[in-house]
């Protein structure tokens, strides 16, 4: 059997400067000088994930699922065609499964092996999602992790943690908060935090008015 021998004492990356910002700069410079990358394309990629693709996409999907029963059914049955129609598919979201929170079951998403995350719906993952602590602990003690996010689940609610080990990306559909019966999709969107779609928060309560920063955790 072949053996994976790639553990040199002096890996190629050791030739780069040690300061991280200079390492990136050195790579970008040599690749640009050889015509392998175009700095304007880098700007475009950064602008895409800073300004155009982010949790507002996922919040739109959740709000529509709350407001439109047929949409919700289709989304839970087979999310990909539904998301494609909204223009929310693409890199790191090629195959999406939406999992629904209920009073009986709370869903929570992690990637213990790296940092898999539904980019087209939530953007680039936050630092805590990529941290060793979250990756190590979410599968073994999800309730303790939730408590650090200010979430305490009722005893009757089971937790199902999804470890993203393949190219399937998971989006949590949080429970719709009570007291929002006649809210429009745009109003509902304001109750959907990023963390509620990862499963480390609940949707915001309507009495917060959906003000950013005020989470709906009990």
């Amino acid at each position: 059997m072949p053996h994976d021998t790639s553990d040199p004492q002096q890996p190629p990356h050791s030739h780069l400067p040690s300061d991280p910002s200079l390492r990136v700069k050195a790579l970008e410079t040599i690749l640009t000088r050889k015509g392998l990358i175009d700095p304007a394309a880098l700007d475009e990629i950064i602008d895409t994930y800073e300004n155009r693709i982010g949790p507002q996409n996922g919040a739109r999907v959740v709000a529509r699922a709350w407001a439109d029963a047929a949409f919700r059914t289709a989304l839970l049955e087979d999310a990909d065609p539904v998301l494609a129609q909204m223009g929310f598919n693409g890199r790191q979201g090629e195959h999406v499964v939406v999992v629904e929170n209920t009073p009986e079951r709370h869903n929570m998403v992690v990637c213990t092996l790296c940092s898999c995350y539904p980019w087209p719906l939530l953007g680039i993952p936050p630092g805590w999602y990529k941290s060793d602590a979250y990756r190590a602990r979410a599968v073994r003690e999800p309730r303790k992790v939730l408590s650090e996010f200010g979430v305490a689940l009722p005893e009757g609610t089971a937790v199902r943690v999804w470890d993203s080990t393949a190219e399937v990306r998971y989006l949590v559909l949080p429970m719709r908060p009570a007291g929002t019966d006649h809210w429009s999709e745009d109003q509902l969107m304001r109750l959907v935090s990023r963390d509620s779609m990862i499963g480390t928060a609940l949707a915001r309560r309507p009495d917060t008015g959906g003000v950013a920063g005020q989470e709906g955790a009990e």
């Binding site: 910002s21 990136v24 990358i37 680039i124 936050p126 805590w128 996010f149 990023r194």
Partner: peptide, 24 residues
């Protein structure tokens, strides 16, 4: 946890690192 509204990239070189990786 960082706040929900925290910048996507906490520093410029993080953004460049992601973009260089995708471009390569």
């Amino acid at each position: 946890p960082e706040a929900e509204g925290a910048p996507v990239f906490s520093t410029d070189w993080h953004a460049r690192a992601l973009a260089v990786t995708l471009a390569c």
